[in-house]
Amino acid sequence: MTKLLEWISVISAVFAVWYSIVGGYVKHPIIDNNISIILVSPIIFVILFGLYAATVVLYRVFTFNNCEEAAKELQAEIAEARKDLLDKGMKF
């Protein structure tokens, strides 16, 4: 099964449950009391997911390891390499 099919099957299963509740096919006092929340729940879910994604992105941006040392080491090695290659007859 491709990822696309996996997505379609999960989304349609969730949609079927949601629609049966909203469409009045399932009756229960809890459903009747919270019908407005259930109606907008897909939108709430999308917003929450967006917030989650934004938080994760920001968190990871600020905790990304900045390798100061590696950059310094590389600069020193570049200088060494150029000098050695010039000695070996390289023309830059």
């Binding site: 994760v56 990871r60 941006v61 990304f64 390891n65 900045n66 390798c67 950059a71």
Partner: peptide
């Protein structure tokens, strides 16, 4: 000890967005 050097905020953010 893995990591990056010389990336600005925009670029790191871009990478992180892609990961998600």
């Amino acid at each position: 000890e893995g990591g990056v050097y010389g990336w600005d905020f925009k670029r790191t953010r871009g990478l992180r967005c892609y990961e998600i």
